[in-house]
Design a protein around this nucleic acid. Structure first.
Lengths: 333, 333
DNA sequence: CTGAAAGCGCTTACAG
DNA sequence: CTGAAAGCGCTTACAG
């Protein structure tokens, strides 16, 4: 019921109503303690009365901190990152930070566009799960905020990285499967560096332990539940039938299990399956899925802690934070 | 390799280098055609040379259009909205619009906070899947942009709505199941208005067609794959065993199917299952899941078309866009 | 087709 | 603890 229904109240309106300067209102809003108690009360009342909502565009421009963070993920459906991103988004919202969501798909061009957009919005940080092309790396150099790569630990990150060793994860899975007596693994590898490193780690360790040849098949990105059908059909045409299928995601593993069961195979007795990521479905599937747990909430916390330190002008504690991983042996292998 | 490596180039830098005013550069950037060809070329070169990335905070403040849209969804994991949101995010990115992602969870307070944040960022539109509390509705009144509710068609939307009739969807499912000869449905209903409307529609139609009692059980929001286990266990304790379980999402349906199969039941012969949403898993599950298809891409397109019209100052074509739905009979029922 | 200039709504040294 | 004032980097009537 204001006099000017078509205009959002501004700092000025609040200041006039409270009988102080805009500077004081601004201070109160950003750091209530620096203002005298009596003044604070008057401002508070004025804010309530006007229904003032600060213009964060103006605030960001003036302070050159946007309180906005870009999160770049490949896609939404059946994504292995969803739990991490969910934890991230909740944490960020709690600290008053807005999340700009970028879906990179699988083309580097889209990634570059999104990074440009993020820079244009002067985000405080970019959190990325995307691979870094050399062109993208060039762009990132011009980014004044904090660039955080998650779910991986590159040699020489342009900003910081919070992740784990995919190679070691691959090794652990190989060791585990050999110890369980499996002999003929089929590796389902998605394109992309990370999947490749897990593959390399797996093959290395498998053969170091005296395992024989490792069969492999590629799967499109994003690897999802529905791919299980094709993978299984392909597998059936192999000369030598594997005794365990190692998948790059739990969704894919779930798909393979469903197909195997539909074909009358018992999992894990006749065919074992391993997933990756410990998504929520992994523990609820029948049989429950043996997988590698990545602590998404921890990745989120570490990333956000780094953003906070960066905002306070402190240098990062370390350029690479290794959050590790944990093989979870369940029923499927 | 600039002289001032620590400063992002501004419009001014570009203007000086191109030998024109900032106004002209701005015009070129926003609408290249209004600038003379020769001038355009010089500006282009200057932009390239400086590596200029426009500050969208400043642009948004000056023009009072942010080219940013807030998308509010309950959560990310196993979400029935993911395909819609994915289509939306891609379309928006194509038109140079940034997506602010808000995870509302299930508390109205969080929704209100996110709407405040969106208003604070002066987003051009808010696209929401969240239920509208009366307090939220109050907030929305002060939002100068376009408020779009999707996946539902409220009586009297504060902005516009793009969705379908949940009641009719419930009715259609009831009719379909009766025609297939099912007699003892178990309805798994999530909290929330939309699920409630489907429930009402189902029961109405079921009984209008001479069906008997309808058994029901509630499930927590978000309804997800893992809930299938509990639902199935509960079902087994019922005095009268249902012949079909009607679920509020395909993920939940998938969970019930997995549990039923683990218990040795054949789906659909011994227990049929119906999902909702036609998520990508529905067509790939074994058996494939009978479900209700919602055209998420169409919802996305309609929403974005409305935003575009709004940006051009045109009034919305209609306050409610009914995109309908389509029952897809597959193997599971 | 282009420029000079005001203005968008904040923040933040600086001074008191 | 508070205010006056400059400035953040754009856009956009207005005039020519």
């Amino acid at each position: 019921m204001s006099d000017q229904p078509n205009r959002n109240p501004t700092l000025d309106d609040v200041a006039v109503l409270a009988g102080v300067s805009t500077a004081t209102v601004s201070r109160f809003l950003n750091n209530p303690k620096v203002v005298a108690a009596a003044t604070a009360e008057r401002i508070q009342a004025a804010v309530a009365q006007t229904g003032y909502i600060p213009n964060l565009l103006a605030g960001g421009l003036a302070s050159s901190k946007s309180r906005m963070v870009a999160v770049l993920i490949p896609h939404l459906t059946d994504s292995i990152f969803n739990d991490t991103i969910q934890a991230m988004a909740e944490e960020l919202a709690n600290s008053g930070t807005t999340v700009m969501m970028g879906l990179t798909g699988i083309t580097p061009e889209r990634t570059d566009e999104l990074i440009q957009a993020a820079i244009g919005r002067r985000v405080d940080a970019i959190i990325s799960t995307a691979p870094l092309s050399s062109r993208t790396a060039e762009l990132v150099k011009r980014f004044p905020g904090l660039f955080i790569q998650i779910w991986e630990l590159p040699e020489d990150p342009p900003g910081i990285a919070v992740g784990f060793s995919h190679r070691d994860a691959g090794r652990d899975v190989a060791r585990f499967l050999q110890s369980r007596g499996y002999r003929r693994p089929l590796l389902v590898t998605a394109q992309g560096t990370r999947a490749g490193m897990r593959r390399d780690g797996f093959v290395e360790e498998w053969q170091a332990l005296g395992g024989g040849d490792v069969q492999e098949t590629m799967v499109d990105i994003p690897s999802r539940f529905g791919h299980g059908r094709r993978i299984f059909a392909e597998m059936r045409r192999l000369d030598e039938q594997p005794d365990v299928v190692v998948c790059g995601s739990d969704y894919l593993a779930q798909g393979v299990i469903v197909e195997a069961q539909a074909a009358g195979l018992r999992v894990p007795d006749q065919l074992a399956v391993v997933g990756f990521g410990n998504s929520s479905i992994a523990g609820d599937m029948r049989p429950t899925i043996t997988t590698v747990d990545i602590d998404g909430a921890r990745i989120a916390r570490e990333a956000i802690a780094a953003i906070r330190r960066h905002a306070e002008g402190q240098p990062p504690r370390e350029r690479s934070v290794d959050v590790g991983f944990r093989l979870i042996a369940r029923e499927s292998a």
